[in-house]
Design a protein around this nucleic acid. Structure first.
Lengths: 175, 175
DNA sequence: ATATTTCACCGGCATATGCGACTTTATTCG
DNA sequence: CGAATAAAGTCGCATATGCCGGTGAAATAT
């Protein structure tokens, strides 16, 4: 009884996300080309700079990336002399990822190109919209969302007894 | 003169997109695990079914994916007997990607799991919001957007002579 | 202080994606 | 028709990511 069970949206959220990622990757890579770095690598260096010599685990968390995946990804950058991996003094297990002088220079170089890409993106997509979009993406990437996702069960029928108040499962944009 | 040039959003749109993609990939992969397929593979098979034996180029276009990348990605699926690549009768250059019986079965199997993931996603994120999100992603993935991106130059100062009318560069959601 | 558990990272294996060079077919042009 | 060009894929190389099974070092429990 009740509403006809529409067979769920035919488009997979994950597929849609990947398509957009591939496309945007192309556009950004294209513009960053002169620097010799891919958009991902440029972003990686930017994060390293921003976090100021983070440990690999820290960096991986920030990037929502698997630790070992990060390790692999860092290799080319280390090989090309943009970063160094130095064991932490306090905790000899940890390794700090640091930009070399060459790395700093590269960041500065890509910064210019990156801004072009970023600007074009906002021009084509809309600045206001872009900001909201990024917030949404940040929400999806957050551990809060992961938690909500795991919590989400089939208990999707509208509740009557508002024990805790309104919309229960939907993640409140706590970003 | 004019407004202070805010140094552009510090967060890279591309980075944000990738982070969300990694996270969502995890969540979906996790749920699809019992099927032995990754979310990407499941999506791939779904697309093949939906397009009903497309050529590789067709499929690649649909997926916003590089042709050779698609070729690589298909290999494991062919090896495991879920698909076949048969040269087209009319054009012997083209290869049609088709689901085998086993492939069809796998699609059916993953369909169930996929729906769980999809449902959880919508529960955690909000159904309405998800729909809009997907539309936005589709826009970004569209060639329209790519065009707008390429067209977008530094000519971002507000124009006075409204030659063609309002907001010029921002892509009208033609999706 | 020692045994146990936890943490941080590495290495191997596998998929995901892109690029550029090369091969085979079609298409188009003169 | 024959040469030039375009189209569809393939292959090798390189990065992007993840999982799993070690290894060594810190933190905890006994």
């Amino acid at each position: 009884m009740g509403k006809t069970p529409v067979p769920l949206p035919l488009t997979c959220n994950n597929d849609a996300l990947r398509k957009a990622t591939r496309r945007l990757g192309q556009l950004f890579d294209d513009i960053l080309q002169p620097s010799g770095l891919r958009a991902t690598q440029s972003g990686l260096l930017r994060h390293i700079k921003q976090l100021n010599g983070p440990t690999m685990t820290q960096l991986a968390d920030e990037l929502v990336m698997d630790l070992s995946a990060l390790g692999h990804t860092l290799k080319p950058l280390a090989r090309d002399g943009y970063i160094t991996l130095t064991p932490d003094a306090r905790d000899r297990r940890a390794k700090r990822v640091k930009l070399t002088a060459s790395g700093e220079a590269k960041v500065a170089e890509t910064e210019l190109l990156w801004r072009i890409a970023q600007t074009r993106f906002e021009a084509a997509f809309g600045q206001r919209k872009a900001e909201k979009f990024r917030k949404t993406l940040a929400l999806l990437a957050s551990s809060d969302f992961t938690e909500a996702f795991h919590t989400a069960t089939k208990i999707n029928r509208k509740r009557h007894a508002p024990g805790s108040g309104g919309k229960a499962e939907t993640v409140k944009t706590s970003i």
